[in-house]
């Protein structure tokens, strides 16, 4: 079929090039998220708490993920959690081998609904599911999830 020719080079056909992205997005954190980020800035990992059904959960939101009541409270936790599952990243998005592998893990906390996904820093040979971890905060904190540089195993 003559109208389904394979194109080997864009130089040989008429085409129009453009970009289709918004350059910058501003994501607001919401009223509970704002206070949660402020706690991170102070070096503290907190959880949201529903006063109706008692659920303590992460990530924090204005509504309870279990009973959908309004949530207005944050509560401190020790910060010690455990690895629910993990993955080791050896190649980056461009397909290049990274100088050092990065471990990404789903981290849960005893008695807390949900959890967070974050980096874990340890030897990929030693990491295992169920391993206990705690957050390591950066010195220069901005009020972002990245204020936690990584989680590290608890010896």
């Amino acid at each position: 079929m003559s109208y389904m020719r394979r194109i080997s080079s864009l130089d040989k056909i008429y085409h129009f090039k453009t970009e289709m992205e918004i350059n910058a997005y501003h994501y607001t954190a919401g009223p509970i998220g704002t206070r949660w980020l402020e706690a991170l800035k102070n070096g503290e990992l907190k959880v949201a708490k529903c006063n109706k059904c008692g659920t303590r959960f992460l990530p924090p939101k204005l509504y309870c993920p279990k009973c959908f009541s309004e949530v207005s409270e944050l509560e401190s936790i020790s910060g010690e959690g455990y690895i629910d599952t993990y993955s080791v990243i050896y190649y980056n998005d461009s397909g290049e081998r990274m100088s050092e592998p990065v471990i990404i893990a789903l981290i849960r906390f005893e008695g807390i609904y949900g959890g967070i996904i974050h980096r874990v820093k340890t030897d990929p040979k030693k990491i295992r599911i169920g391993m206990r971890v705690k957050p390591v905060f950066r010195r220069d904190k901005k009020g972002s999830i990245d204020d936690i540089e990584y989680f590290q195993p608890i010896e």
Binding site: G30, L62, Y63, F68
Partner: peptide, 12 residues
């Protein structure tokens, strides 16, 4: 501009 996230706006 609302402070609430899209999820929170849907909830309200």
């Amino acid at each position: 501009r609302l402070l609430e996230t899209p999820q929170e706006m849907a909830w309200i």
